[in-house]
Design a protein around this nucleic acid. Structure first.
Lengths: 200, 200
DNA sequence: CGGCAATTTTACAGTCACTGCAAGATCATC
DNA sequence: GATGATCTTGCAGTGACTGTAAAATTGCCG
């Protein structure tokens, strides 16, 4: 059938792309499973590769570093949606209120079972805890950039930078508090409390 | 073997301790020098060991990790003095004012030439930038602990936790701003600005 | 001074994350 | 079904870091 019509360009990007995505998912799943079973440090990438039925060398074509396997699960839940969601907020409210509103819309994805599991691993090792801080920095920059778009007046920039810092800090402390209380109150409650305390 | 020349008969702290301290200092100095000359990543610990005239294995008895060599320079300037200095503040002022006052007393040590050099290295590599964030977390905990001693009423704890977060955040942003402006204003000015913005 | 125990230094071997390279396997397309 | 692009893999190597056990050094006592 030599129909010269290219109605589906996804067909050309088909099998290869799909296979690649499947392999990446398999690595992430097997990796997470082994991390949970044996611990993060005790799990070698060799073992993850074997469980994923690929060579060790190939694994590095899918994940550049070991902790990227964990970021596969952590990433899409929050970071990517942060900028767009915040930009959709109204500029008629105080910036802090906008960020709080945005956070409240997003944190539901963060309370899935898998997120809790990943979070436990993320807190099990110094190297990963440190890595987590880096993510907060990225989120802070994302929030700041979005705030600058919503309130473009340049004389507010310094103030917005502080707002971004306080907002992410409040989020971090809320998650920290909830972890320690282990589930007696919802993350949203802690968030609202912390944001209320920001302005004193 | 040469004669035993004991000009200073140290009682409990003998030759051993002094030699150990000298070796540690030598490693830190040679390490910093090589980091500046060739870059942090490009400098192997093997090279640092050779420059320090010790074996590679011995180096690990003095510094457990590569970045600990940098922390040798960073550490004593700020982190260790933070708790005691903050505890010396008066509890008659708002907590944020106390932290600001404490910071202003301490940051002078942070503007030495060596600190600037170390800071440049600390910002030259992703791994070290991440490491730096971990130090901020430690400082935040230190500030929080001191604040809890100054204002022990338990119902204020949540609020003090936020204060510690905001204070360290303001410090971090001040240093960030000064780095980017490369010295046109003093760190103290940025700090005062940021603390003024915290209360809005 | 000599001898002995405690400590320090070192060599050696090994683990693990990660990289570069080049050959083989697989896939898309004409 | 040949061809070029992409994917997979083995192999060798680097560099941070660890365990071990043998030397060298140091503290101390008689």
């Amino acid at each position: 059938m030599s129909e010269a019509m290219e109605e589906e360009p996804a067909r050309t990007e088909g099998l290869r792309e799909r296979k690649r995505r499947a392999t990446r998912l398999r690595i992430a799943e097997e990796g997470l499973r082994l991390f949970v079973e044996n611990g993060y440090d005790a799990t070698t990438l060799e073992a993850v590769a074997v469980a994923s039925r690929i060579s060790a060398r190939t694994l590095f074509h899918y994940f550049k570093t070991k902790d990227e396997i964990l970021q596969f699960w952590k990433g899409p839940g929050f970071l990517e949606a942060l900028g767009p969601t915040l930009l959709a907020e109204s500029a008629d409210q105080p910036p802090l209120d906008a960020v709080l509103s945005c956070f409240l819309k997003l944190i539901s994805r963060y309370e899935t079972e898998k997120s809790v599991i990943v979070d436990r691993i993320l807190n099990s090792t110094e190297a990963l805890r440190t890595r987590k801080q880096a993510i907060y920095v990225t989120m802070e920059q994302t929030v700041f950039a979005a705030l600058c778009e919503l309130w473009p007046r340049p004389e507010r920039r310094a103030s917005l930078r502080i707002v971004a810092m306080m907002a992410i800090g409040a989020l971090r402390l809320a998650m920290e508090a909830q972890r320690q209380a282990s589930g007696t109150r919802s993350l949203a409650d802690y968030l609202r409390d912390n944001f209320a305390l920001l302005g004193r």
